[in-house]
Simulated assay, not measured.
Amino acid sequence: MAERIAGVTGSRADFGIQRPVLDALRAAPDFELDLYVTGMHLSPRFGHTVDEVEAAGFEIAGKIDCDASGGSDLEVAHSTSAALAGFADAWAGRRPDLVLLLGDRFETFAAASAAYLLNIPIAHMIGGDVTSGSLDDGLRHAISKFSHLHFTTNEPARERLIRMGEHPDTIFTTGTPALDAILSRDLLPREQVERRVGAPLGARFLVATFHPATADKGAPSEQFAELLAAFEDLPADMTALVTYANADSGGAELNRLLEVAEERSDRIIARDSLGQELYFSALKHAVMVVGNSSSGLYEAPSFGIPTVNIGCRQDGRLKAPSVIDCSPERSAITAAMVKAVEMDCSGTVNPYGDGRATERVLSALRKFMPFEKLGMKRFFDA
């Protein structure tokens, strides 16, 4: 009998990362996938990207609306509460054998909380990392403590989970599934990228995403204004393709600033979402990635392009030699971009995997079937 796994996706970012695993689960005869959509996917403000999930052929088992608007801390707390209640109701009515989660978002934390309180086993992808510049750091570690199985992207992350009391036999270093997608699909030629973006990209272009650094004392809007100003220092033949910030506290204000900047500048092209195929295709043709998104660390190295990583949001994560750290100040960002243009990153080795994460995840899941035998967790004293 197939084991029912509940997958959860809340944004374009996590869907793109975990899609290879979700595709494999729905194709496997010994698994039954129920996919639940929540968070930014359901917001028109962020492109209503649930449409992309459905276009990819996924049947959606439930839509958990938590009004992810990117407003204040209080609004994010209320969104988390709404998501927790929504997942609890969904899984009380259609109980999965296992909940599969990825990452560290507040809606993912809500799903983990609901599953844990309903005594449903949890498997967690991309735990054990450190991002001390973001509240996601604490959420990620909390999700790991709720979880029975762990799929990490690197060995230092695995070692951290052991120090957190997770049993070594339940932790598997798989790499990130995002690289599986990069290496397994044909990406769009440059002219199609430009056509689908719907604007000329110039002779050269960079891809940028900047999210609120929620654990940083600096104001996200002031930091983002510095980045937008730095774009004006780019060479005349270079444009910036910028995607919207996420729904963390302060994200809505960043997106308003981006919209104003796009109206005033011929250097900036803003889009709420690109979707996985277009985003990866853009990276294939871009000269660099700029901002503070994990994509600059996880995925950009596999394209042989440099990353300008701004501020403290990704502090603590493994970084390939292609990553340039800089402070969130116009002069520092401009200097880092100038350095990036001159770098040759064609031989970069990505520290987050080899494109075979999906097969490792499914192999590990099968070792613990049926999932009911996972039972209660025990703290592992190393």
Results as ranks from 00 to 15, higher is better:
M1K: 07
G7E: 10
G7S: 13
V8R: 06
G10Y: 09
A13W: 06
G16P: 02
L22I: 09
L25N: 09
Y36V: 03
Y36W: 14
M40N: 02
S43M: 10
D51E: 14
A55H: 15
A55E: 15
G57W: 13
E59N: 13
G62L: 01
C66R: 01
G70A: 00
S72R: 05
S72I: 10
D73Q: 15
L74Q: 12
V76D: 03
V76C: 06
A77M: 02
A77Y: 04
A77F: 05
S81A: 15
L84A: 14
L84S: 12
G86P: 09
G86C: 06
F87L: 08
D89K: 14
W91Q: 01
W91Y: 01
A92F: 02
G93M: 13
R95I: 00
L98C: 10
L102P: 07
G103Q: 04
E107N: 06
E107S: 02
F109M: 15
A110Q: 09
A110L: 12
S113Y: 08
L117F: 13
L118D: 11
N119T: 15
P121A: 01
P121R: 07
I122K: 02
M125E: 09
M125W: 07
D129M: 14
D136Y: 12
D136G: 06
D137E: 08
G138T: 13
L139G: 00
R140E: 08
S144M: 03
K145L: 14
S147M: 13
T152Y: 01
T152W: 02
A157F: 10
R163T: 07
G165P: 12
P168G: 08
D169M: 04
D169N: 08
T170P: 00
I171E: 02
F172H: 13
L179F: 02
R190N: 06
V193E: 11
R195M: 14
G198Q: 12
L201G: 03
L201E: 06
R204C: 06
V207Y: 09
A208I: 14
T209S: 11
D216R: 01
D216Q: 00
K217Q: 11
A219H: 14
P220S: 00
S221R: 04
A229N: 06
A230H: 04
A230Y: 04
P235S: 03
T239R: 15
L241I: 07
D248P: 11
G250Y: 08
A252H: 10
L254R: 00
N255R: 04
L257G: 01
L258D: 04
R271P: 05
L274Q: 05
E277V: 01
L283T: 01
L283C: 09
K284N: 14
H285D: 10
V287E: 15
M288K: 03
V290A: 09
G291T: 07
N292L: 04
L297E: 05
Y298G: 12
S302T: 09
G304C: 07
G304Y: 08
P306C: 03
C312H: 11
Q314R: 04
D315F: 15
R317M: 03
R317Y: 07
A320G: 05
S322C: 14
S322D: 11
I324E: 13
I324Q: 10
P328T: 00
E329W: 00
S331F: 11
A332Q: 14
M337S: 08
M343E: 06
V349C: 06
P351Y: 10
Y352N: 08
G355M: 13
L365Y: 02
R366L: 01
R366C: 01
F368I: 03
P370N: 04
M376W: 15
K377M: 06
F379K: 02
F380M: 05
D381N: 11
